[in-house]
Amino acid sequence: MRAYGLTLAAFFLVALPLGAQAKTLGNNDRYMCSWGSDIAAGAQQSKLSGVTLYAARKRLQVRKFTKPWMRMTAMGITEQTYNSQSRLKPAAIKQTYYEQCVSHALARR
């Protein structure tokens, strides 16, 4: 039980600064990180479900996007997700993508 408590405490020590960092991001950066993490999670779900990369790319081709850059970015994220050996659940991919995106956005500043 004690090891669980230490693990939980370590999680909160790591997660707390990430939450504080996210507040310093602008709305545009938060939106882009959230959008990208949704795309990555969807691609992982498709990959784990046995959908081919070709079929996933076809779905993105017919999908409506609000901004011109989104289609090609979604294609890139999907291709990277499919090329990864990861078998993590989509929720874990979404969280990881978001955290890394936030770190990257903050490093650019």
Rank of each mutant, 00 (worst) to 15 (best):
G42V: 10
G42W: 07
G42A: 10
G42N: 08
G42H: 03
G42M: 04
G42E: 01
A43P: 04
A43H: 01
A43Q: 01
Q44L: 02
Q44W: 05
Q44C: 03
Q44H: 06
Q45E: 05
Q45H: 07
Q45G: 14
Q45Y: 00
S46T: 06
S46C: 01
S46P: 05
S46F: 02
K47W: 03
K47Q: 10
K47M: 00
K47N: 00
K47T: 04
L48K: 10
L48H: 11
L48Y: 03
S49D: 09
S49E: 05
S49F: 01
S49H: 06
S49A: 02
S49P: 06
G50M: 11
G50V: 00
G50W: 04
G50S: 05
G50C: 04
G50H: 11
V51Q: 05
T52I: 03
T52G: 04
T52K: 07
T52Y: 13
T52F: 12
T52W: 09
T52V: 03
L53Y: 03
L53K: 07
L53R: 07
L53M: 09
L53N: 01
L53Q: 04
Y54K: 13
Y54V: 08
Y54H: 12
Y54M: 10
A55N: 15
A55F: 11
A55P: 11
A56E: 11
A56P: 00
A56S: 12
A56W: 00
A56K: 03
A56D: 05
R57L: 14
R57N: 12
R57I: 09
R57H: 11
R57M: 15
R57C: 13
K58H: 09
K58G: 13
K58L: 07
K58E: 12
R59M: 15
R59V: 08
R59I: 11
R59D: 15
R59A: 15
R59T: 13
L60A: 02
L60P: 11
L60N: 15
L60Y: 02
L60M: 06
L60T: 10
Q61D: 15
Q61S: 14
Q61T: 06
Q61H: 14
Q61F: 11
Q61M: 14
V62T: 15
V62L: 05
V62E: 02
R63G: 04
R63H: 10
R63K: 12
K64M: 07
F65N: 06
F65M: 07
F65P: 03
F65S: 07
T66Y: 10
T66H: 12
T66G: 08
K67A: 14
K67Y: 13
K67H: 13
K67R: 13
K67F: 12
K67L: 09
P68F: 00
P68K: 04
W69D: 14
W69G: 09
W69Y: 13
W69S: 12
W69R: 10
M70L: 10
M70W: 07
M70E: 13
M70A: 11
M70D: 07
M70I: 00
R71L: 08
R71F: 09
M72S: 09
M72G: 15
